[in-house]
């Protein structure tokens, strides 16, 4: 990777030229702004209860309406953005870290290391993941950290398989043989020569993984075992939406739309990275 900046310049240029990927990137940047400066988007405090104005439809005062406790929905969504976005990031960070280690070990050493690790991966893939997440969270208690960790711990298998497959083919290449002939040890080969070459597929998996984690968190919060009120998250605002489904459509509509748009942004960017990293795959 080092010494070949041209590859990365090409990559960035192809990525920026892809209009859909650029749109996805813009969406993500926008929601990062929201989560960094929520007060900029709504002057209401997110947790101020106002019994007089409960379940008000969108108006000039409350652009997205109020919830069942009279709290401003826009303010809660702006403040909830930070929670929803950071869950995605931390969860995927954990998943990538585990997947990388397992995949590199299995692919590079092969033999019984590979056999044991891959059987473990097979086993983890047999759990209906959502059942597993649901029970763990219900047992150890719904806190935002627990949610991030458990989504990460149940989401690394895809990355491990990906990295293993890449490693298997990379370690047979001439440049690895050349490095070994020059006396490079296992550690140097793995980290200097193999790891950098697996970055593109990992980046794609990570981007798509963030999208998946945001969806999972919102589903957990929606079921009442995710982020706990009064802390706002897009998922738990939707729970109030479900309880008031007959009177207050705005309470269901806007938080879900935010989730949809964010996840769409990550998916578009992920596809864009894939195409930019390997132009042969374009359009498929």
């Amino acid at each position: 990777m080092s010494g070949t900046p041209g590859i990365w310049r090409d990559f960035t240029r192809r990525l920026l030229r892809n209009r859909l990927a650029a749109a996805g990137g813009a969406i993500i940047v926008f929601f990062f702004l929201v989560s960094a400066l929520p007060a900029l988007f709504s002057s209401h405090p997110p947790n101020r209860i106002d019994i007089v104005h409960i379940l008000r439809a969108p108006s000039a005062e409350h652009p997205l309406g109020t919830d069942d406790l009279g709290r401003d929905v826009l303010a809660r969504m702006a403040h909830g953005a930070r929670i929803s976005l950071s869950v995605g990031f931390v969860a995927v960070g954990i998943a990538i870290a585990i997947g990388l280690v397992v995949g590199l070990l299995a692919g590079y050493y092969g033999g019984w290391v590979d056999a044991v690790l891959m059987r473990f991966v097979d086993m983890m893939l047999c759990f209906p993941a959502f059942f597993l997440i649901l029970s763990v969270i219900a047992f150890i208690g719904p806190s935002i950290w627990n949610i991030m960790i458990i989504i990460g711990l149940t989401g690394w298998m895809g990355v491990a398989r990906l990295v293993r497959a890449e490693t298997l083919s990379l370690k047979e290449r001439d440049f690895v043989a050349a490095a070994r002939a020059q006396g490079a040890g296992d550690g140097r080969i793995v980290f200097r020569h193999i790891l950098p070459n697996t970055l593109a597929p990992i980046l794609v998996a990570a981007t798509l993984g963030v999208a998946g984690a945001i969806l999972t968190e919102s589903a957990l919060s929606f079921l009442g075992i995710g982020v706990q009120p009064p802390t706002p998250s897009w998922g738990n605002i939707l729970t109030a939406g479900k309880d008031n489904i007959e009177f207050a459509w705005w309470l269901s509509f806007f938080p879900g739309l935010a989730i949809l748009v964010t996840v769409l942004g990550y998916n578009l960017l992920g596809e864009g990275i894939r195409d930019a990293a390997d132009p042969r795959l374009k359009g498929r």
């Binding site: 999208a211 969806l215 589903a219 939707l238 269901s252 509509f253 879900g256 989730i259 996840v263």
Partner: peptide, 12 residues
């Protein structure tokens, strides 16, 4: 379709 939270679509 990939990005829609199913439970949200259900509510709608």
């Amino acid at each position: 379709g990939f990005a829609i939270p199913t439970f949200w679509l259900a509510l709608l």
